[in-house]
Amino acid sequence: MELIEYKNVSIRYEKGKPVISNVSFGLEKGSITAFLGPNGSGKTTLMSALNRLVTPFEGEIFVDGISIKDIPLKKLAAKIATVPQFSSPSFGYSVYNMILWGRAPYISYTPKSEDYRIVDETIERLKIERLKDKPFTEISGGEKQLVLIARAMAQKTPIVLMDEPTTYLDIKNQIKILNIVKEINASDGVTFAVTLHDPNHALYIADNVVMVSNGSAVKGKTADMMTEENIRKLYDVKSSFADIGGIRYMAVDYRD
């Protein structure tokens, strides 16, 4: 059985035209799935239905066989962590506290020693000790993304959603984030669903790809999905693929 299952899901905003229409697919436990699609295709919307930021008007989404409608918000947050594209707190909370907020699903009133231990462990694992006392509002974009990943790790969930984690980062930080995702997936068996803009990032980290366009979504193995034909259909661009050093890359034709 798949860990996450979308069954005939349709989503729309304020009684408008559906952004997503009758979509069904599943995400396997321990896999990394990349959601690809042009701007406005609905890939973030499709993922946001999973953490209940948007509610489908038709169909259901199941996690571990239970409809997410029936899972209380707090319990859902103990199953699914989300790394948002950005976070802009109005106050300069320390990086340490921003990571501690990840323990919220387990804290009724104030954090316990166990929560602090998990935060310390996470900071050590991601090697971000030098950042922990700095205000979150004063660190770089790449560092912020790392901290938000650390927060999701401190949440200790079997599923992590990431919304365009590499969009605003330089190449060095993009590589760092992608490798962290791969490493957490391999060592902890965490299931990842990641929306991405760069198909090369999907080729590097994803086991499966969900291609989202015109309200529909098609899922398949990365190797099967990432073809010149599918990329042309999805983005309306010409592309070609090549294997370099055991990694598959995609190049696009920049001439319009």
């Binding site: 918000l73 948002p84 106050f91 907020w101």
Partner: peptide, 15 residues
């Protein structure tokens, strides 16, 4: 603290 991050972040943190 969690509420001060905004409604969406509060929701994804289970609050």
């Amino acid at each position: 603290n969690i509420l001060s991050l905004g409604d969406q972040e509060a929701k994804i943190l289970g609050v």
